[in-house]
Computed example of a mutant assay.
Amino acid sequence: MYFFKNLFCFLDHHQSYIDHNMTSNVFPSRYMSSSEEIPLQIHGWLRIHKNGRCERLVGNDIIPPGMDPLTGVQSKDIIISPNVSIRLYIPKSANKNRKLPTLIYYHGGGFVTECAGSSTYHPTLNLISSETNMVAISVNYRLAPEHLIPIAYEDAWEAMKWVAIHLKGNGHESWLNDYADLHNVYLCGDSVGANIAHNMAIRVGLELDPCKVVKLEGLILLHPFFGGKEPIGSEFNKHQQNKAFVDHLWMLANPVGVDGLDDPLFNPSRNPNISSLGCSKILVCVGEKDGLRDRGLNYKKIVEKSGWKGVVKVFESKGAGHVFFLHNRSCKNASILRKNICSFVNVIRSKS
């Protein structure tokens, strides 16, 4: 019943949006369409049928965990609760005599698709864990529209708290107890996962009990999914269609949000707690041809003006589009991006 209540809420909202903003049943973005049988289709991603069935077109091809022959990274899946699970990675160099920095990663997919074990994310996390020589924790959170925002953020926070119970080396998971330095943790994510990572960093900073959270050193935002009611930069012209898509995607996942496109979870400039980011440094990665590029660059300005006492660095991949590094992992730009992540976390790469 809860799923259908959410779904009908979503469909009602989007039908209202269509009625007031569209003609000829065409969405304001070319990435979406609507018909009588399929009230919403995100091309190549998701179909929501009239009977309420959600058909996801990506993120379904799961790669089993285990030893990766390319990198030597080992991985396994862990169920944290009935709603949240993670995929845990340890690099080839891991040994119990020297704990490694830890990366908590949130996948993208517009809040509506993808998972930690998909063919998009599993090979990427193997590479990141190997090249940075870090323990990596890739989080599965529940997806919209079955589970509307703030569910994704609550699931992400639940995973954070579960990791924190291993701070003293006596938690439930032996790999974290033996190999993970939870006093040297980085949050990372791509697209909506970067949005989640940003909001988790704020929650870490607001947490009054240090025993309940990991020691957060830095935040890595890969092509972050931010927005707002008013367009900025290229959203006025060449990326107008992209903004329409991003806006609609946010409203799909959060149709009943009080502030709509200016929700503080989506528009960092509206978040009164942004100066509470619980880390000392941030790396924002953008793609030159990404429709979200200007939002990433603007994020740096917002954070610096907030009074936050850390350092924000920006790295731009020339000629690259949105999350290119997930789909072309062997290209020069993807390798350079991962090297920048490695440099940012100040980890000496394993020579083994």
Rank of each mutant, 00 (worst) to 15 (best):
130 S>I: 00
296 G>H: 07
261 L>F: 09
295 R>F: 00
141 Y>G: 09
155 D>P: 04
236 F>M: 11
318 K>Y: 05
122 H>R: 13
115 C>R: 15
57 L>K: 13
217 E>Y: 06
191 S>A: 14
316 E>S: 13
10 F>V: 15
148 L>D: 12
20 H>A: 15
127 L>P: 02
2 Y>E: 13
167 L>E: 06
54 C>S: 07
93 S>E: 08
156 A>C: 14
257 G>D: 11
229 K>L: 14
343 S>P: 00
44 G>F: 07
139 V>R: 00
7 L>F: 13
190 D>F: 08
252 L>I: 14
113 T>N: 15
179 Y>P: 04
119 S>H: 12
328 N>I: 07
45 W>R: 10
317 S>Y: 03
191 S>T: 10
291 G>P: 02
240 Q>S: 13
69 P>H: 11
111 F>W: 15
22 M>P: 00
130 S>W: 03
250 W>S: 04
60 N>V: 07
114 E>V: 05
335 S>T: 09
66 G>Y: 03
304 E>V: 06
20 H>E: 14
247 D>N: 15
36 E>S: 09
314 V>G: 04
270 R>K: 15
227 G>M: 07
52 G>L: 12
319 G>A: 06
257 G>M: 12
308 W>M: 11
254 N>L: 09
81 S>N: 09
195 N>L: 05
22 M>N: 03
30 R>D: 06
41 Q>W: 04
101 P>F: 01
294 D>G: 01
336 I>A: 12
188 C>E: 13
269 S>L: 11
35 S>D: 12
165 I>S: 13
9 C>I: 12
118 S>I: 10
334 A>W: 03
234 S>R: 14
102 T>E: 04
